[in-house]
Design a protein around this nucleic acid. Sequence first.
RNA 1: CGGGGCGUAGCGCAGCCUGGUAGCGCAUCUGGUUUGGGACCAGAGGGUCGUAGGUUCAAAUCCUACCGCCCCGACCA
Length: 441
Amino acid sequence: MFFSNLLVPILKNNPSEAKIKSHKLMLRTGMIKQSSAGIYSWLPLGFKIMKKIENIVREEQNRINAQEILMPTIQSSDIWKESGRYEDYGEEMLRITDRQKREMLYGPTNEELVTDIFRNSIKSYKSLPQLLYHIQWKFRDELRPRFGIMRCREFYMKDAYSFDLNDDEGEYSYNKFFLSYLKLFKRLDLKAIPMAADTGPIGGNLSHEFIILAETGESKIYTDKNIFEVNHQNCEINKISLENLRKNFDKYYAVTDEKYNKIEFDKLVKKEDQLETKGIEVGHIFYFGDKYSKPMNASVDYDGKKVFVKMGSYGVGVSRLVGAIIEAKFDEKNENMIWPINVAPYECVIIPLISKSDKTNLEKSMKVFNKLKENKIDTIIDNTEENFSSKMKKFNLIGVPYQILLGKKTDDDMLEFKKVGEESVKLKIDEIIKIINSKKN
RNA sequence: CGGGGCGUAGCGCAGCCUGGUAGCGCAUCUGGUUUGGGACCAGAGGGUCGUAGGUUCAAAUCCUACCGCCCCGACCA
């Protein structure tokens, strides 16, 4: 409730190691603390934001009836040998030997593990489809981690897996996640473009990357501007509606540089509709059929026969999204973060003017706090004795979207209420509550 | 892994070239005056100078090795 009690080590200088704004600001506002190259601790402010993102991801996964599980971070090499990826994955996989000299690894992804769970549990096609997801730490030993949590070695990721009887059903599952991701990014107030993608070491034949536009992005992208007009408002969860949704996106040219071809781009997209820019990959979905189910013998009985299940996998970089949102929504002019209210570390901050001799504003702020709390508004009181303006600036920097100022201009009924970046207005507390709560979704 | 750079107080830096036992700004603590867009005055605390070895009467400074971190490239949610 009180800012003075929080572990939020704000710095006035940017740490020199940070080069991009999300990294700088996350260090400056004490959201994260580097532990070693590409490995970070999450301090209260950063952790709170990440948890809010995680919860939205969870809600959107549950909405398509995906079931949440939790698989371990440490895996046995055995199943990776079965799938053939133990050799293929290479140096990026962190390998560990336990005291019995068993080969273990810190999971970079979970196709093998989830397939193992599936094959031991599901025997009949009648139990299909199965959509499973978990939100768990992953480790990929990047050659060169950089940009803070944007490209780190240990990262927090939602990964989901689908199991279906045939390709038609499999694609239906794939499309459910496609929609789920569009809804997710919308709630995070991000414009994400689904782009045809290479399948990389995961393998398969159908894949989309979800990219948000940001100057500091690592992926070069080439797209038809009209893709931004496609929306998913009226899409329902049935095969036809989902298929149409994907067709509406897929008909526009939208690729990263791996798949870019200039001749094709010029042929398919009118000059004035061409957009060449950079983006951040925040989600990636794959359909790869029986790539893992076959070598790992994951099958169901159907019509008297054994049928290998058709699989897909669906990732969202939860920790990366924290940085990605900063990159995408940053206030260039004032160098402040701007959090969408759904994931803001606090929805509202109360800033009372306090001196050693006069604490009446602090008492007032407690009353306001309690009222906001009753109405489910996530609020913090800045009870420090810093200068009034210094407190305002601090919360502009952190990106708390709303401020209630209890200072010289305060009277009893009408509170001074301010949206970051705008002039303050005098409002009754009930109106303030209504405004804030109307912005959440 | 190739190329470049850096390591001195919580953060940003100076000192190193030319060896003589550590300094500045911010932050922190105490007291006071302040408070509407990152205040001011006075005082205080905090550093085995990345680690180990060597040269020297003497090493943050010179030499060697190692460790860590950052940047550019090839690879990636």
